[in-house]
Structure formats: C-alpha cells, structure tokens
Amino acid sequence: MYIYLNGVIVHQSEASISPFDHGYLYGLGVFETFRTYGGHPFLLKDHLSRLKKGLKALNIEWDIKEAEIKKIVSTLLRNNGWEDAYCRLNVSGGPGEIGLQTAPYEDATTILFQKELPPSRPLREKEGVFLRLRRSTPEIDERLKSHHYLNNLAAKREIGPSHDREGIFLTGGGHICEGITSNIFWIKEGAIYTPSIETGLLNGITRQFILAMAKSLQMPVHEGLYRESDLESASEVFFTNSVQEVVPVNRIGNRTFEGREGRFVRLLHEHYQKYVTYLDSIEEMKEGNAHATND
C-alpha cells in the first residue's frame, strides 16, 4: 500500500517518523476519516474544516489546501488501484524537544493513508450495548478528533472484538453520549432525537450531515440531554460515522428495534446515497435544497 507522508508518496514499508514527534510522545495531533465513492472524497471540505479547527486549538501550524488534498487522494487511489476507499488524514505536532511545548508547532507531520472498501454497503445491523465505562470529558472545551483514544480503546475491550456490536457511552452524569466510534440517533413518532454537543460527544461530520438531511426531509429534529429510559419508546435506533454511514440497531439489552426494516433508517440511507459521489460540503446540500424549494 502507498501512503502520503510529508509531501511525498511512499510505500508503507518505507514510511517513518521521528521518535521525538510530539504526536507520538504526547498525543499532540488530530485526524479525520472519510470515504471516497468512485474516487470522490465525500464531504472533504467539512472534514478539513474540522481538522483545521482542531489544529488551531492544539497550536499546530498547517496549511494544505483542499485542492492539494484531493490531488493526494486521487494519486493514492491510482497507485493503490482503488476507487472506493477509507481515508485517514493524520496531522501531528511533528518533532520537537523533549518536554511539553507551549510555543506553536511549525513542522507538523502529515500522513494520509487508505484502505480499500467495497463500492456499496447494504444496511448492516448492529447490537447496541450500554457501557459500564463512562465517556471521558473532552480535553478542552470541545471534543477534538484527537490521538487521545484510550477511553475508546478501553470501551472496545469491554464489549469485545465483534463487528456486530457497538458500545454506547453514558456521561458521568448518566446521559446518553455517543458510540465508541459513532454518533447515536433514534426515532420517536416520526421525529429524530440525538444527544447534544453539551454531553461532550464528538460532533461527527456524518452526524451533522444526517441532521441537515433530516431537516431537508422536514423531519422534526431534537438535540438534548437524554437517559437510557428515553430509548424505551423509540421505534428505530441507528449509529452513524463517515465510513459505515447509517447503521441500524436491532437490539439494545432486552429491547428490540426495527433495524434495517425501519422506515426512517431506510429513508435516510437512500437519501444519503444520492450525494456521495459529488458533494464536497453539507452547505452545498443545504443550498441545493433551498434552490429546489424556491423553484
């Protein structure tokens, strides 16, 4: 597999970083995962916007343009012989002196690698499992998609290696927060519910896209503080992330849900697929829907 590392395309066997990289020593870095569909990096503009916001919070200087990232993605796809792929863009503080640094990081390490995916993914159900482990609080005011992943790793170890189960974090105060690698939604009487950012969740790009798409479909949307009992009257539950898209839930504990047969899960999944081969940002979808309404 070929990867991008600090300005060059290299085979993975030739890639190396400094042992003094502060991403390795202190976890100073953020990353984004996104998918390509027929070679198109879906919602790349939004992923880069969140990445740059996180880098600013970590005081890491980085200025690679969207057009350059698209070129790198295309080059890697061509070299690897793929069209549909998982992409991870990783930026760390780069090498520095030993010790905690307060000055800006000016020599960031940038890595972009891919993993082949099938061209289409049918709706695949998962079981939801409420975790004993609670969600850690964000490192700063808002949770970053950072290298600090021990809380997620410990949660995954709690539920085991099965790909058919997803853990559900509660906050320290007992509110539903998010999945181990996903955001969570549920449906009640035609309305969509999801925990608010106040819970300390990662504000996923797919989460934002689903909320915008639900509004365009004129579905009532509610974000707030919810407890386990709020799921008891839900008809549908689903997880979202940028690689697995919309993942219907068929069971949580003794409670069963409609899973892949759920009307709204299927509706959202179908509409999601309409955009994946060309959309660069959520704002483009909003503008397009606004124009369609005006017409």
Rank of each mutant, 00 (worst) to 15 (best):
Ile72His: 04
Tyr278Leu: 04
Ser16Asp: 09
Thr181Cys: 10
Thr256Val: 12
Lys52Phe: 11
His175Tyr: 12
Val8Tyr: 15
Leu117Asn: 04
Val265Glu: 10
Ser281Asp: 05
Gln244Cys: 04
Arg78Cys: 09
Pro195Met: 08
Ile176Lys: 12
Val30Lys: 04
Glu142Ile: 10
Ser13Gln: 09
Arg251Gln: 07
Asn203Asp: 13
Leu267Asp: 01
Asp21Phe: 08
Ile252Met: 09
Lys145Cys: 03
Tyr149Cys: 00
Ile192Lys: 10
Ile111Tyr: 05
Pro138Phe: 02
Gly128Glu: 02
Ile187Phe: 13
Asp230Val: 05
Asp107Pro: 00
Lys215Ser: 05
Val30Cys: 11
Asp164Met: 11
Asn90Thr: 05
Leu44Asn: 04
Leu279Asp: 11
Met213Gln: 01
Thr206Gly: 08
Leu268Met: 10
Gly99Arg: 01
Arg251Ser: 14
Gly23Ser: 00
Gly190Ser: 05
Ser235Arg: 09
Asp230Thr: 03
Ser136Val: 03
Tyr26His: 03
Glu261Asp: 13
Asn79Pro: 00
Glu116Trp: 07
Asn152Gln: 14
His40Thr: 06
Lys156Ile: 11
Asp164Gln: 14
Ile210Leu: 11
Phe31Ser: 01
Ser16Gln: 05
Gly128Arg: 04
Leu267His: 03
Arg260Tyr: 06
Pro161Phe: 15
Val221Tyr: 13
Glu223Arg: 07
Leu202Thr: 00
Asp63Leu: 06
Pro119Phe: 12
Phe169Gly: 07
Gly99His: 02
Arg157Phe: 11
Leu25Ile: 00
Lys286Gly: 08
Asn241Ala: 10
Ala212Thr: 05
Lys71Thr: 15
Asn183Ser: 10
Gly27Gln: 01
Phe257Ile: 12
Asp230Met: 07
Leu77Arg: 02
Pro195Asn: 03
Asn241Gly: 06
Ser136Leu: 05
Gln114Ile: 08
Glu127Asn: 12
Gly204Lys: 09
Ile282Asp: 09
Lys215Gln: 09
Glu66Ile: 13
Glu139Asp: 09
Phe264Leu: 13
Asn90Glu: 03
Thr137Val: 06
Glu166Pro: 01
Pro118Phe: 00
Glu127Lys: 15
Arg124Met: 14
Thr110Glu: 01
Gly173Lys: 02
Gly167Gln: 12
Asp63Glu: 15
Asp107Arg: 15
Glu178Ala: 10
Leu144Val: 00
Thr293Ala: 12
